[in-house]
Amino acid sequence: MKMNVGVYLLFAGAFLTAQAQAGCPQGQEAFTSCQIEGRNTEVFVCFDAQVATYRYGPIGGAVGLQLTETIERVDFEPWSGSGVSIFESVTFYNGDYAYNIGGGFDRPFSEEDMQQEPRRFGWVEVTESGEHALSLECIPETVSYGFGGGIHDIKLAAGQSWDSFSFTWVSDDIQPTPTSVLQEISYESVIEYCLPVSEFSLGGVHMGDSLSALGKLGSPETIEDPDGRGEAIDRLYLVGMHIDIFQDAVFAMSTTSPSWEMPSGLRVGITRGEVIRLLGRVPNGYTATSQSFTAHVCSNNPVSDPEWTMVIDFGQDKRVDRIYFVSQSH
């Protein structure tokens, strides 16, 4: 049933002024556009210095779906610099759905190629919760795409750089520390990375803090047997975060808000590449494109169940969706 809803949102009239016409909004220029093979519809990705816009609808008719994102946050993937074709894409997010729109052309490699009109191509790929939902192809001769400048240069001018390892943009304001936050330790000839105790803190609330130290934040609620161990805990609900207390000490925290920041600057909403830059490296056992990162607290004597563990979950937009700390000792 969800699949039908997603397709409906793609083709019907959601999120929009009813009489809006296809094409770019006033004051914006096209990054790419085309007519869709076999559907009598067209797609436009447009931009100006502040925002990028996705529009889909009947050819020359009212727009069926419009999505807008700021240039700072828009998920634009530039050409890799290799391959037989030049192509770029932009992804827009709408709840569980993601719309990836791209355009490109074959590179000329001979004088004969230079004499001919290059083959152009484009697409729209729709996913739901990261799973493939729909693929649309552009009619080649209708594809409008010009390589160079555009969204890429505006993002650079806004102080961002492309990280080809994580496939995300990184703000120039986020710089690595002189020494890596994610520390390297060696135990019985095994090298692992860990986080210092000081990093297990969100907005000044630390793992292990006593309940009395949290009094100014409010009164906790008693939660009976939340994890099936037969023990009750106290939970403090705050805006965008909750704190779990057991035996008068904080043993778990979870946040989905950028307002609660770790000492290193790690927070909800930053890109995967920015997380890696702040950590100083990718945690062992993960890659620069993993959907989550985990790191344990540093200890002189590593054990199979570390006292504290940090988990960072990324959303489908490649940005931090949630950060939480857990204690294995509870």
Rank of each mutant, 00 (worst) to 15 (best):
E137C: 05
A158M: 06
Q28S: 09
T255W: 05
F200A: 04
I139F: 07
F314V: 09
R229G: 12
Q160V: 01
A252C: 09
W169P: 00
P226F: 02
Q160D: 05
G95L: 13
E188M: 01
V282E: 08
A22I: 14
T17M: 14
L278I: 15
Y54G: 01
F47E: 04
G95A: 10
G204N: 09
V239S: 01
S135A: 10
Y187W: 13
P118L: 14
L211A: 14
Y97P: 06
L236Q: 09
Y324E: 01
V190H: 04
S219Y: 08
F325R: 00
D106T: 04
A62I: 04
E188C: 01
Y193M: 06
A249S: 13
E42A: 04
A14M: 11
L236I: 11
V124P: 02
E199Y: 00
Y193G: 02
C298M: 06
N301G: 11
A232S: 15
D234C: 09
Q160P: 02
G81Q: 11
N94G: 06
L266F: 05
T41P: 07
G130S: 10
D225C: 11
S189V: 06
A62T: 06
D106G: 02
Q291C: 01
F92Q: 03
C24V: 09
S259F: 06
R120I: 10
R73F: 15
L202M: 02
P263R: 01
R55L: 15
G203H: 00
